[in-house]
Design a protein around this nucleic acid. Structure first.
Lengths: 187, 187, 187, 187
DNA sequence: GATGAATGAGCTTTCATTCAT
DNA sequence: TATGAATGAAAGCTCATTCAT
């Protein structure tokens, strides 16, 4: 049955609307329209629920990241594909994106989960692309994980402004963001 | 005496150490070494306290951003000054920087506060510098707020790595960051 | 189970024993033998609880007032029935009677509640009996509500003495009260 | 200086407006426009303050009760004078009257104060008038204190209705109230 | 005397969790 | 499984009282 999904969806909605610190179980129960005891059939406590929501969001993002990814394309093309997917994911799944972004460094999320790779290993794909770029002498010689965070952080920053309607993200702006983030990586 | 400052400092420390969602008043009282009722002489509730801490951090950063800013210097020099100040602020005030970065887009912070300008209008200075660069045909014709988010995001990403990995940010690496963000804006 | 009733009964007891201003929730919890959170399943705050207790007392008194009331009996018989019921209610439900008497004009009780009529409209019955007596030329042409307050006041005074002095209210004294209040209304 | 009076007046006002249970020192300080420590120069705690306010109200009422009292007049005239004064006191000093009425039986007021007689011994005057009426065989043979409470209670009941604007108290209604309370006492 | 910032005991209230149904 | 009334530890908050100025 969909109770588990209902609960997780309600939780994500509430985190997005009010922030984790003001999400309570009773709000979740009302929003998910389940009884207050039901949650304990699926999650043994709040932390486990939040971690499950985090994991699902990461899985979804991982899936999205590799859409249309062609491993035979040029480095630039592949980079653009990944960054475009990252940006589009943020545009289409703002709740998931922001949740991941906010809690990836939070003690609330277990370290194993934070460092997880998803079913399609999207993180690995990004990391090896970075290594490839560095080997070609194109990219700056930074720690790869740091580099990963760098290209994620730029998109994240752009999206946050977009979320609060500081600016639109049309085709041309999007292209410029991709270009800029590429340039920022170059030696 | 500075009870108000003590309370705000303790609050910022705790948010930094444990995250907002696990900051309680009793932790604040103990850390600030004040009586439990004292806080209510200064803040009528928790949200007001957190917003006050946010506002102060923003003021501090705004102040810092314009240190040594010479409005008669060249565009590149002025850009470097601002970005360097941004980076140094993050290095010297990690708690303040991370708090601003995390909560600027949180529902916990009131929108008026998010869009506040500080006493010295540092945000305006950055935005007009971007406009100037675009008028000279140097910078891409992206939305100015987007550009602002972009260059902030680069510094933010670098700093987060710095905070976690504790690698040094020496002269050459600092220069790389400045160059990366400058390049990202260029046509 | 009757947790709601337990809470209300404990509240009434405590108000009677110590006065509203010294009734705390923790005293109520202990007396009612319920957990501290339980009350909030039934009442959203203290004022609501006290008002509910007041309303219930008023309902009970209204019910009691019309016991054995025969609308076909003579005016005097009907008057005696009502006053006797009023007196007996006070004797059998001292806590309820005193609570109503003390708080009917208190700012703690909402005006709508003060002016409520109970399920059987006992107030209306009394008022129309007074009108009837006035039409027959028996009763003084005083405002009907004033008359009502008057005959209530007599019973109330007697009862307060009874509560404090613990003197018996035997048949002859009861008759005196009824006669006094009847006489007070006569032209 | 008038600080003491200011504090007492503010206290009485607040008790009247919100009921004793919601009167706090900080409300008193604001209303009386004095510093929060000032009260302790005059009263050693809250109970003492409330008792002082009670005492003053009783003194005022005692004074008022004997206005125009002619000890050589007839029993009926003297009775009417006292009851009229009682009623008028209630009309002109509603805050004082209600406060006395509510707290005369409260544990908050010390027993000595409750049983005090005022400077002009108005309570004694009423009691001896009752005794006189009983000796003449006019009044019912009730305990004199109970009888006192009876005639007070009737006026009190009438006034409470008046306070909530259930009816006006003009000259003719007033006369009828006096007559009715006289009749209620008769054998 | 007059003040009001500081206090902390104790109050109200919340909320994750349990458990009988 | 699904429920929601009941719980109580812990949170937020109030307020009489103190004390240095």
């Amino acid at each position: 049955m969909g109770k588990r999904q209902d609960i997780m969806a309600a939780t994500l909605d509430l985190i997005h609307e009010e922030g984790l610190q003001s999400v309570t179980f009773s709000k979740i129960f009302k929003k998910a329209d389940v009884g207050s005891g039901t949650i304990y059939n699926y999650f043994s406590n709040k932390e486990e629920l939040v971690n499950a929501v985090y994991k699902e969001a990461r899985m979804l993002m991982g899936e999205y990241m590799l859409q249309g990814y062609d491993s035979t394309a040029s480095l630039y093309e592949r980079f653009k594909c990944l960054q475009l997917n990252r940006l589009h994911f943020g545009i289409h799944y703002p709740k998931e994106f922001l949740f991941i972004d906010s809690f990836s460094f939070s003690p609330y999320i277990s370290p194993e989960l934070r460092n997880m790779d998803d079913s399609r290993n999207s993180v690995e794909v990004v990391l090896s692309l970075i290594v490839e770029g560095q080997k070609q002498g194109l990219f700056k010689e930074m720690d790869t994980h740091l580099c990963h965070q760098f290209i994620h952080g730029i998109v994240s920053s752009i999206l946050k402004g977009y979320y609060v309607r500081k600016y639109p993200l049309n085709e041309s702006q999007t292209q410029q963001v991709l270009e800029s983030s590429w340039k920022a990586l170059l030696v």
